[in-house]
Structures are given as structure tokens and as C-alpha cells.
Amino acid sequence: MTHVQPDAFLRQALSVLDVLAFDAEQQVHHVRCLGVGVDEMALEFDDVFRQGVGMEAEGLIAREVMSCMIPVDEILQRMTEATTPLWTEKAVRASVEWAELRTAAERAAAGVRRVLPIQDD
């Protein structure tokens, strides 16, 4: 397992949360520029979240950091289990689920920044 420094993890987590907090048009533009589907935003969050769970268990990051991110993970879990198609650009623009996700991601990013503020380079 590759060990990531806590500050590097924090920067990565904030980057992913910021993308999830973008408005719908910014999110669509983001995934189009990357040449990926909208589900990639969720996959990136999942990678970071799972890494954070391990880092928390090792005592490398504060529990409060992960607590801020849990609501985003829960929303994404519900979206994944939903029977309606939520992994489309149309859904990003129009669904209640995506709006809820953006709000949760914005709150999570603000919470992470409060718990462990980082210095801009």
C-alpha cells in the first residue's frame, strides 16, 4: 500500500470535494474536458474516501476529517443504488440527488478546511 502524507491526502480530498461542489455546468465541463463520464466524479471521491478511512484507522488524520466526508459518501451510496439513471449529464443538471450532493460536498469541503486548514503554495 502506498503511504500518502496527511497534507497530500487533505489536498486531494479537498480537490475532489470541490469538484463535487461545482455547479452542474462546471461539473459537465470538467468531465468533458477529462473525456470521462460523470460517474468518474463519484469514483474519484470513493478512492479518496477509502484511503481516508485507512489513514484515520492508522491515526494519520483526525476523525473529524472523515466525519465531514461521511454525508457525501452516504449520498453517493444512495445514488449508486437508485433505480433512476443518475450517471448522465442530464441528471447532473436536473436531478435533486445531484443538487443534494453538491450541497453536501460544499459543506464537507468547508468542514475539512476548518478541521485542518492548509497553506496555499
Rank of each mutant, 00 (worst) to 15 (best):
R50L: 11
T88F: 04
I118Q: 15
L116G: 07
S95V: 01
F9R: 05
F9D: 04
V31A: 04
V48C: 15
S15E: 12
E81Y: 06
D18P: 07
H29W: 08
M41N: 10
L76E: 01
R93F: 00
V31L: 03
C33M: 07
A57G: 07
I61R: 05
C33E: 11
A57E: 13
R93V: 05
P71K: 03
G111Q: 14
G52L: 04
Q77H: 10
T103H: 01
L101M: 05
R63V: 15
R11F: 04
V115M: 09
E74H: 09
P6G: 03
C33Y: 02
R102T: 03
Q77Y: 11
V92W: 04
L60M: 15
P117R: 08
G54F: 06
H3S: 06
Q27W: 14
G37E: 15
D121A: 11
G59T: 01
A24W: 06
A13M: 14
V92R: 08
V96D: 00
M41D: 04
R32H: 10
A110T: 11
Q119Y: 08
A8F: 08
V36E: 11
W87H: 01
T83I: 08
I75L: 01
G111P: 07
T103N: 02
L17I: 06
M1R: 13
V19P: 09
L43N: 07
D23H: 05
D120S: 10
V28S: 01
A110M: 12
Q5E: 11
M66D: 09
I61V: 14
R102V: 01
L14F: 02
D23L: 04
V96W: 00
E74Q: 14
L60P: 02
